Simulated assay, not measured.
Amino acid sequence: MNTKQGWAGFVDEILDAPVPMRREELEALSPGDRALNREARKQFMIRGSVVHTAQFKAIETEILRRLMLNRYKSHGKLGVIVSGEPNIGKTTTITQIARRFERRRRGIGAVGSNAIPVIYVSVPPSCTPKLMLGEFAHFLGLPERARYNTGELMNTIATLIGTCGTELIVVDEIHNLNQRYRQMAEASDTLKQLSEKCPGTFVYAGVDVEASGLLDGARGRQISSRFQIMNLQKFPRTGKAKQAWANLLVAVEGSLGLLEQEPGAILRHERELHDATGGIIGDLTSTLHMLAIDAIDSGAERLDLDAVFGTKPAPAAAASASA
C-alpha cells in the first residue's frame, strides 16, 4: 500500500461474501468447485471482513470532523493520532477508515481520474527529513534522483499533493520519530512543514505514542495541541464492557464462513478466549482465523474450542458426537 498503485488496488478490491450453503450443498459440488468455495471463504474471512467496533466508529468520526474543519484553515491544521499497543488494530483501523473515505469521495464524483484523495506512508526506522520525504516521493511515483535538495523536494511534494486533491494523509509507524534525537526531531518538523504547505489532514498511528518520545519537548507539546490522541484499547471483560466483548466475538464468528458453526456458540468460551488473547482484537482474529482455516480444510466446518481449551462439550454437541 506504500505506492499510489498499491493503495488504489487496496481501495478498489471488493470481496463478496461467499453464498451461504449447507454441507450437503457443498458436497454436491464438483471437487474443483468445492476447492474454490473453500478458498473463497478463507480469503473473505481474512481480507474481506472488517468488524466496525465502537472504537473504530469513534476514531472515524473524529477524523471526519477534523477533515471538515481543516478545509477552512490555512495554518495550524488539526490532526488525529491513533495510539495503542502492538496488534491492537491501529493499522487496520486507519487504513480501513481511509479506504472508506476514498470510496465515498469516488462515489459522489468528488474526485477526478488523476486525483489521489489519500496518501499512506510509514515512518522508517532512524528516520531523517530526507528519508521521510522519500516515503512521500515513493508513494507518489516521483522519479528517484541521486542528489536532491530537501527544500526543493518538499515543495515538489506539497505542490503535487495540492494538484492531486489529496485530503487525507496517513502516516503509520509514527513512534519511530523520537524528539530526543535530532534527526528524528527534524523529520517531525518536516511533517509539520508539509502540513502547512499543502492541503490535507494528517493522521498518525503508532505504538504507545505517548511514551515514544514523539510528544516530548516543545515540538511534542505543539503536536499535542493540534492532534487529538485516540487510544485503541483492549476489550475488558468486566461490567458493561463485557457485552462489547461478547458482541465482538459474535461478529468475528459470523465472518468465519463455517457451514456448521452455530451462531453464538463461541460465547461458551468467551472467558477462555479473553484469557488467551487479553482482549486484543488482533490476537483474537488471528487465533480464530487459524482455527477456522483448519476447520474448513479438515471438513469439520465448526470451531472446536473444547479441544483447544480442554473444556467439556455442550450437552447437545456431546449427544450429537455420540450419535
Results as ranks from 00 to 15, higher is better:
Q179R: 08
Q179W: 00
R180I: 13
R182L: 14
Q183S: 14
Q183R: 09
M184G: 06
M184F: 09
A187K: 09
S188G: 15
S188L: 14
D189N: 11
T190I: 11
T190H: 02
L191P: 07
L191R: 09
L191G: 09
K192C: 09
Q193V: 15
L194R: 06
L194V: 13
S195G: 12
S195A: 15
S195L: 11
K197H: 09
K197W: 02
C198V: 13
C198A: 15
P199Q: 14
G200K: 04
T201W: 02
T201I: 08
T201L: 04
T201F: 01
F202W: 08
V203M: 10
Y204F: 15
Y204K: 07
A205P: 05
V207W: 02
V207C: 07
D208P: 03
V209W: 00
E210I: 15
G213E: 10
L214Q: 02
L214G: 00
L214A: 13
L215T: 12
D216H: 08
G217R: 00
G217H: 01
R219I: 14
G220M: 01
G220I: 04
Q222N: 11
Q222E: 13
Q222C: 04
Q222P: 04
S224K: 13
R226I: 03
R226N: 07
F227I: 00
F227Y: 13
F227A: 05
F227C: 08
I229P: 03
I229R: 10
M230T: 02
N231F: 08
N231R: 12
N231Q: 10
L232N: 04
L232P: 05
L232F: 10
Q233R: 15
Q233N: 11
Q233S: 11
K234W: 00
F235W: 02
P236W: 01
R237W: 00
R237E: 01
R237N: 11
R237F: 01
R237S: 06
G239L: 06
G239C: 04
K240G: 06
A241Y: 04
A241S: 12
Q243P: 00
Q243K: 14
Q243T: 15
A244C: 04
A244E: 03
A244M: 07
W245E: 00
W245M: 02
A246Q: 04
N247Q: 12
N247R: 07
L248M: 11
L249M: 01
L249P: 03
L249W: 00
L249R: 05
V250E: 06
V250P: 00
V252Q: 00
E253V: 13
E253P: 09
G254Q: 03
S255V: 13
S255K: 03
L256M: 10
G257H: 04
G257Q: 06
L258H: 08
E260Y: 07
Q261D: 08
E262S: 10
E262D: 11
E262G: 03
P263I: 01
P263T: 01
G264E: 03
A265Y: 06
L267S: 06
R268E: 15
R268K: 11
H269M: 14
H269L: 14
H269C: 12
E272C: 12
E272G: 04
